[in-house]
């Protein structure tokens, strides 16, 4: 009976994860600044499992500039820099398929657990990996 469920839920903790706070802060940046100063507490997001496909990490030193990742990338995220024979990754366009990680012959690419990637500018330094 639905009433039983309703009453049980009325007296139990809501299912929603309160990330980053119970209610939307008036200013997110202000809230984050306060968290930085230790004045407010940030509720952590739901943890991600092992093998999560988050923001790409790039090991510049290992990269041999073979450009295979550029060939398989479905979203043209990766740009080749001919002068250094290295790549630049525009995470703003990334679809997180991880195909570049699979194809890389020297394992210079990896996927991290970072997924909070919102920024105001698609060329924001946090969204460019090189």
């Amino acid at each position: 009976m639905i009433l039983k469920v309703l009453m049980a839920q009325l007296f139990s903790r809501p299912v929603t994860n309160r990330f980053p706070a119970k209610y939307m802060p008036r200013s997110v940046t202000g809230f984050l600044a306060k968290v930085g100063q230790g004045k407010a507490k940030l509720v952590p997001p739901v943890p991600v499992p092992k093998g999560f496909r988050g923001k790409l990490a790039y090991d510049r030193e290992t990269c041999i500039g073979c450009q295979l990742c550029i060939r398989v990338c479905p979203a043209s995220v990766i740009m080749f820099k001919p002068e250094t024979k290295k790549i630049r990754i525009h995470v703003a366009r990334c679809t997180f398929c991880g195909q570049c990680v699979d194809v890389c012959p020297v394992d210079a690419l990896a996927m991290t657990e970072e997924f909070l990637l919102a920024a105001y500018d698609r060329f924001d330094p946090s969204l460019i990996v090189e």
């Binding site: 309703l6 009453m7 839920q9 009325l10 139990s12 809501p14 299912v15 929603t16 309160r18 209610y23």
Partner: peptide, 13 residues
């Protein structure tokens, strides 16, 4: 608020 709690949500302030 109470409707939200019965649905397992936090609900508005």
């Amino acid at each position: 608020k109470l409707a939200a709690r019965m649905q397992g949500r936090i609900g508005p302030p």
